[in-house]
Simulated assay, not measured.
Amino acid sequence: MQKEVQNYCELCGSPIKGKGITVSYEGSIINVCNSCYAKIKGHSKIVDPKKVIYTSSKQQLPKHQKAQPKLESKEDVWEIIDEYPKLIRQARERLGMTTKDLAQKLKVQENVIKRFELGRLKPTIQQARELERVLSIKLLVKVEEKGEEGGANKAKYELTLGDVVNIREGNE
């Protein structure tokens, strides 16, 4: 006679009586108790547990979705140039747009555009890309990674846990 495995709610941790309810909640497929399901049912969708597959990263996906491969390469790092307020204002004026017109195109409040132009608010990378597209200007520059030699120097000056212990003990 096989002993039945006890399932636990993946939200509250309490033992589940019966099979529980498998739901898609905030991008994850989880098994929850009736009490937790009552709390999240407006934000979740019931999933058939027979149609769930497990990927190598233990992420659960419905069978109709394919796991997206994770790219090992480093993403480019972008930075907004320091002269962004002046460039945004000049480009907007060159195109004959008001701050209200630009705000509507970017789907932000007019106050946000004014703050960009005064330098009081720095656009996010996504906002900078939109500004570049709409105004035909260049606001983003790629941050150059130092080569292997620079990387070795960088590692030389990084603080490690051992360094923290030595500092606290007064050894350095």
Rank of each mutant, 00 (worst) to 15 (best):
N111I: 06
N34F: 05
V5C: 00
K58R: 15
I88P: 11
A128R: 00
I29E: 03
L118E: 11
T55H: 08
K105I: 01
K51F: 11
I30E: 00
R89V: 08
K114G: 14
W78E: 10
V52E: 14
N111K: 07
E26F: 04
V5G: 02
I46R: 12
L161Q: 03
I21H: 12
E158Q: 11
K74F: 14
E158M: 14
K19R: 13
A67P: 13
V134L: 15
K114N: 09
G42T: 11
T22R: 07
R120I: 06
Q60E: 08
E75N: 14
I137M: 07
K100R: 15
K146Y: 11
L121W: 04
K41P: 00
A38F: 01
N171R: 15
S56P: 03
T99P: 12
T124D: 03
Y25G: 01
V52A: 13
A152T: 03
E169I: 02
G27A: 04
K63A: 14
K156P: 08
G96W: 09
G96K: 11
I125Q: 06
L95Y: 05
R120S: 05
A91M: 03
L140E: 03
K19L: 08
S28D: 13
Q68Y: 06
I80D: 10
K142L: 09
K100D: 14
P62W: 08
I167L: 15
N111D: 15
T99I: 08
T98E: 02
E130N: 07
E169H: 10
D101N: 15
I29F: 07
I81V: 13
K100Y: 14
Y25N: 05
K122L: 09
E144W: 07
E117I: 01
Q126T: 12
I40T: 00
C9N: 05
K142F: 01
K3G: 01
C33V: 02
I30T: 06
M97E: 10
M97P: 09
T22D: 05
K156T: 03
L121R: 11
I137W: 07
K105Y: 11
L102M: 09
G147F: 01
V112P: 02
E130A: 10
L87C: 03
W78H: 08
L135W: 06
K50A: 13
E93K: 10
Q127A: 15
A38T: 00
K41V: 06
S136M: 11
E83L: 09
V32I: 06
V108D: 07
G147M: 10
Q68L: 01
K51A: 13
K58C: 13
E75H: 05
H43C: 08
V77Y: 08
E148H: 05
L61K: 04
G162Y: 07
D76P: 09
I21T: 13
C12L: 06
I30P: 00
T160L: 11
I30W: 07
L102K: 05
